[in-house]
Amino acid sequence: MPSENPASKIKVQTTLPRHPFPPNTARSPLKTERLIIRPLTQDDLPALHALRTQPEVMVCTALGRIDADISETQAKLDPFLPPGDADTYNPGICLASTGELIGLGGVFRPTSELGWPEVGYMIRKEHWGKGYATEFLRAYVRDWWGLPREKAEVFVDGDSLEDDVGKGESVREMLCAIVEEGNMGSTRVVEKSGFRKFKAWTVKSRRAGQEGEDITLVGFVNVGLEESA
């Protein structure tokens, strides 16, 4: 939960997945037509390092650079392993045909800058354009909304709400995604997975060589309704 109430956010009553999350050992793999979506393990370190050293993948991240070495990748993997799995819900994305880990995705922290849990994903460049991201996100969203819930009081971006609400009112829980403007591939993925766009805003880049430049981000939310076609 945020430590303060930014001017752009309002306090609402809602629900969130029960915390802590189920441990990795209690999470059953999700199976789709072409994917197995399963908890990450320490054995995934080499494949994760291969993913995180692809410049085409990492250019879209906050820092915009590949991991410097395997120890940096280990530090990125650790939050998804016990005991970090209590606070994260990020499975690996594997090909059902081979078992190869081609990416990962999910919710990294209970709240985001928009106040709601934020979902994201990364997939190796060789597998772009094949529909795997949409296949993953649709399955993950179904699983997310199936988690046990508990009541929560959170500060959320008021623009994300479907109706005008006052401070402290009850609202439907949302899952959000943030996409950089111009990233049409990810925009299509989130829209096909039932997310609706609600706002755009500008931030200063932290990427190497682009520090201080303006980046426009676009916010999307999903309320667990029927997926779009």
Score class of each variant (00 low, 15 high):
140 Y>R: 01
1 M>Y: 09
163 D>C: 07
132 Y>T: 04
63 L>I: 13
89 Y>V: 00
131 G>A: 08
189 V>Y: 02
144 W>K: 02
225 L>S: 13
15 T>Q: 15
8 S>Y: 14
201 W>T: 09
168 G>T: 08
220 F>T: 09
34 R>P: 09
158 G>V: 08
37 I>A: 04
210 Q>H: 15
89 Y>D: 09
184 M>N: 13
165 V>T: 08
224 G>F: 02
125 K>D: 15
34 R>K: 15
7 A>T: 10
5 N>Y: 13
188 R>A: 13
77 L>C: 03
96 A>P: 04
184 M>S: 14
53 T>K: 03
9 K>G: 01
166 G>Y: 12
140 Y>E: 03
118 E>P: 10
106 G>D: 07
217 L>G: 02
58 M>T: 13
56 E>C: 02
194 G>Q: 07
17 P>V: 00
92 G>E: 02
5 N>F: 13
169 E>Y: 01
115 G>T: 08
137 L>K: 06
121 Y>F: 15
222 N>R: 06
77 L>D: 00
111 T>P: 05
156 V>L: 03
109 R>F: 14
219 G>K: 00
130 K>S: 07
107 V>C: 13
220 F>I: 05
22 P>Q: 05
133 A>E: 06
65 R>P: 04
68 A>S: 14
81 L>V: 01
46 P>V: 06
206 R>A: 09
90 N>Y: 03
203 V>F: 05
188 R>M: 10
99 G>Y: 06
219 G>N: 11
183 N>S: 08
6 P>G: 02
201 W>G: 06
190 V>W: 02
72 E>H: 08
163 D>S: 13
144 W>L: 05
166 G>H: 12
226 E>D: 15
25 T>V: 14
182 G>N: 04
76 K>D: 14
85 D>M: 03
207 R>G: 05
223 V>S: 15
57 V>D: 12
97 S>V: 05
29 P>F: 00
177 A>F: 06
108 F>Y: 14
87 D>V: 11
181 E>I: 10
55 P>W: 07
18 R>T: 11
99 G>A: 09
224 G>Q: 12
190 V>F: 01
168 G>K: 10
58 M>L: 10
225 L>G: 15
54 Q>S: 01
62 A>K: 12
99 G>Q: 13
44 D>K: 06
150 E>L: 09
6 P>S: 02
212 G>R: 12
224 G>K: 14
4 E>G: 02
178 I>K: 06
16 L>Y: 07
141 V>A: 12
111 T>H: 14
136 F>E: 01
202 T>H: 04
136 F>D: 00
163 D>P: 00
176 C>A: 15
212 G>T: 11
123 I>A: 03
21 F>M: 12
35 L>V: 07
13 Q>G: 02
56 E>M: 11
13 Q>E: 11
221 V>S: 08
40 L>E: 01
23 P>G: 01
186 S>K: 11
163 D>F: 05
228 S>F: 10
93 I>N: 08
67 D>I: 08
57 V>M: 07
23 P>V: 05
49 H>M: 09
23 P>R: 11
111 T>R: 10
154 V>H: 06
129 G>N: 06
107 V>E: 08
63 L>Q: 11
101 L>F: 11
121 Y>E: 04
27 R>Y: 00
213 E>W: 10
179 V>I: 15
53 T>Y: 09
136 F>R: 07
194 G>F: 00
50 A>K: 09
151 K>Q: 11
